[in-house]
Structure formats: structure tokens, C-alpha cells
Amino acid sequence: MMIAFSNVTKAYGDRRVVGPLSTTIARGQFVALLGGSGSGKTTTLKMINGLTSPTTGSVSVDGRPVGDQPLAALRRRIGYVFQEVGLFSHMTVAENIGVGPRLARWDADRIAARTAELLSLVALPAELGGRLPAALSGGQRQRVGVARALAAGPALMLMDEPFGALDPVTRDALGRDYRALHDALGLTTVMVTHDVMEALLLADRILVMDAGRVLADGAPGELLRDHPDPVVAALMETPRRQARRLEALAGAPAHG
């Protein structure tokens, strides 16, 4: 088991934003935390790498409570990607990707080789390595963000709306590319999203969150079959209705 939440709550003053939450995430899973704004999904994610600490209960990674270890060391073993990416604008793309390995004190040759490897892994041309982030498109920047998070070889990836700011075509391509990486590298991924379709298409397991609680927890297929919770059922109805309309518009049965 990779991550365990036990009786976790998070409150700001009197206002509880998460919990009580108890669940575990196994090694190799691709889990989506799905919910609208204010559902507590980002707060839940940030408790895994200690960017936020729980008010009560505890979160542990690899069996060790997050609060009991040096956070900087923990975070270096976890990849973190978020919507704004946060590339360091004074560093080139290659230098950005090299930050994690530098923190791990790799030598220059190994960093250079790793950078080249990662650029090809996230399907970016090698010559982009010398450019500054300002010269990249949104999709390219997000790919660099993924590469940077993967650089030091983490086993766990935390992603907060990683593809939220991209156009639909880029977003779909990047999602599929990342899912392939997840499988190829044997990663464990926790991804926050508000997009039902994205969660359904990428994740192995979806936690539907609302007002800090988990309304549903299951594989995409299970959630799509009539779920007892009306909120979940309504949420799952949306992509299905959209698919039916698309079929009707195309005037032909959809395949697969």
C-alpha cells in the first residue's frame, strides 16, 4: 500500500473542508479525485506531500506518517504537477527539468542524459532544452512540467488539474500520453480533476468528492452503472448524454 488516509479531517477555523476521510491507495493505481470547486479534492491531494497538513488524523506514504519526516526529503521522492505548472522563468527548459536531479546531487553528465531522455519521453524536440519557458506554448509548458516532475524518478505522481488550461485536442493528447507513461514506468498517480470525462478515460479508480466527503469510490465502469447516490448518478449521466447526442449528430452508431 502506497498511501493511507486514516480519519483525516482538515478545517479552517470552524469550516471543515475535508473529511472525515479514510482510504488507501495501492501501488500502481491511477486514482482520480473528481469534484467541483470547494469539494476538498486539492486539499486532499496536498496533504499527501505535506503542502497542507491535516487538522486531525494522519496521512502516511509508504507506511511513514507525512508529518513525521522532513518534508523536503519526502517531496523529492514525489512528482508534483499542477495547472499553473510553475516553471522557473529564469531557467531554460533543460535547467528546469534538471532541478530534481540537482537536488538529488546527480553529476552533470547524468543530468544532461536524463534531461534528453525526458524530453523525448514527453514527446518534445531535443532543441527545446535550450529555450526559456516563455518561448513555449501552453501544451509544451505542461509537458515540461510533467518531465520536471518525473526527472528524479519518483514512484508517486501528484497532479492537480494538470491539463486544465489546455485546449481540448492538446489536452486529450497529453492525457493519453501521460497514461501511457504511467503504465510504462509503473507509477502510482493521484490526479485531481473536475472533468468527468477526463477521470473516466484516464483513471483506474475514481473518488467522487463533494463538500469534503467521498460520495463514491470505484472503477469507472462501476460508477457508470446506475449508482445509488443521486449526485453521482447525475454526474455520470452527463458524459453519457453527451455521447448519445454526438452519435445522433453524426447519424451513425459510435464504435467501441
Binding site: L51, A72, E84, F88, L103
Partner: peptide, 23 residues
């Protein structure tokens, strides 16, 4: 400093001094 860059620095595990001098 761009809050996203600061969050990335924290999220990647830079210490407070590394965040200051690197970012």
C-alpha cells in the same frame, strides 16, 4: 515572485534556503 514558481519550488522539495537562492 510568481506564486506558481514558489509553489513548484516547495512541491519539488527545495529547502527554504534553496528556494531563496535558486528561485
Amino acid at each position: 515572485v510568481d506564486p506558481a514558481a514558489a509553489e513548484a519550488a516547495d512541491g519539488m522539495g527545495l529547502t527554504s534556503l534553496q528556494k531563496l537562492t535558486w528561485v
